[in-house]
Amino acid sequence: MLNKKEARLRRAKATRARIARLNATRLAVHRSNTHIYASIISGDGGRVLASASTNEREVREQLGSGGGNVAAAQVVGRRIAEKARAAGIEQVAFDRSGFQYHGRVKALAEAAREAGLKF
């Protein structure tokens, strides 16, 4: 029987394989209890082109509180979209890393879409 983390990683593997076949740039999201992280990873070499998280000083100052809530995820979503556009990236594939599309993951994705990122 799989534990919670192994089951999530198994789900993530299928998504990543599908994105790899498309050779698309992906927006990978990871969340912990206290923080949320977003990275834009190139489809050809797997290089990180842009990243944003609640660990960044500017985000922490903007939030004031911890990074484990929906408001923090929205800030990170807007920030990753701005950084992606600055790097010339318009289109990405959303990689939720096996996490359920709900709560903080959903808030990050919708904030990134509103800020102009297409997926």
Rank of each mutant, 00 (worst) to 15 (best):
A84Y: 11
N69E: 06
A107P: 05
V105G: 04
R78S: 15
E90I: 12
E61R: 04
S51L: 15
G98M: 07
E82I: 09
N69T: 01
E56D: 13
L63C: 00
K83L: 15
V75C: 03
A87V: 06
A81Q: 10
S97Y: 13
R79M: 14
G68V: 00
A111P: 09
N69L: 03
G66R: 00
Q62G: 02
R57D: 14
A84W: 12
A115V: 08
V75T: 03
A111S: 11
A115R: 04
A115P: 12
Q91E: 14
F94D: 05
G67H: 02
E58Y: 13
A71N: 05
N55P: 02
L63I: 00
G77H: 07
V92K: 01
L108I: 06
R104Y: 11
N55V: 15
V75Q: 02
A93M: 08
A109P: 09
G88K: 02
A72I: 00
V105I: 15
E82R: 10
T54Y: 06
V70Y: 03
A50I: 06
A107D: 07
V92A: 04
L63R: 00
V76P: 03
G77A: 08
R60Q: 12
G103W: 12
S53C: 13
E82G: 12
N69I: 01
Q74T: 03
T54L: 07
N55G: 12
A50E: 09
R57V: 11
V76C: 08
E56W: 10
R104C: 07
E90C: 09
Q100W: 15
A73R: 00
A72H: 00
S51G: 15
F94C: 08
A52E: 11
N69Q: 02
Q74L: 03
A112K: 02
G66E: 05
E110L: 10
S97K: 04
R78A: 15
I80E: 09
I80A: 05
A107W: 08
L49F: 08
E61D: 12
A72G: 01
F94S: 03
G116T: 11
G64R: 00
R85Y: 14
E114G: 10
A112W: 15
G68I: 01
R60K: 12
